[in-house]
């Protein structure tokens, strides 16, 4: 299963692209995806603590543009957006 993680705000620093892709064997919950992202940061940014903090403080949104909870199950290929702490205006 492929999860395309759309990057916004400070999380855009995680990649030169607008997204990251995660290939996962089984269904997972959002909290597991959070761990996958942190694992990615450990491997690619030597565990950059600032980046990890962004992930820990972020919410996530579904393809339907709803904020999803940590126990939300991802069961098929889909896009998930990472929503770091916000501050418009």
């Amino acid at each position: 299963m492929k999860i395309t993680l759309e990057l916004f705000g400070a999380s855009r620093e995680f990649s030169n692209k607008e997204y990251l892709e995660f290939f996962i064997k089984d269904q997972i919950e959002v909290k597991d995806l959070r761990n996958e992202i942190i694992h990615f940061l450990d491997e690619n940014f030597k565990g950059n603590e600032k980046f990890k903090k962004i992930v820990e403080r972020s919410a996530f949104c579904s393809e339907e543009n709803n904020i999803i909870k940590d126990n939300y199950k991802i069961t098929k290929d889909q896009k998930i957006g990472i929503i770091p702490p916000i501050g418009g205006g």
Binding site: V30, R57, A59, I67, K69, D70, P84, P85, I86, G87
Partner: peptide, 11 residues
């Protein structure tokens, strides 16, 4: 620098 913002509660 990206500015620190407000958390959106989801957990």
């Amino acid at each position: 620098e990206w500015l620190e913002g407000n958390l959106i509660q989801s957990k």
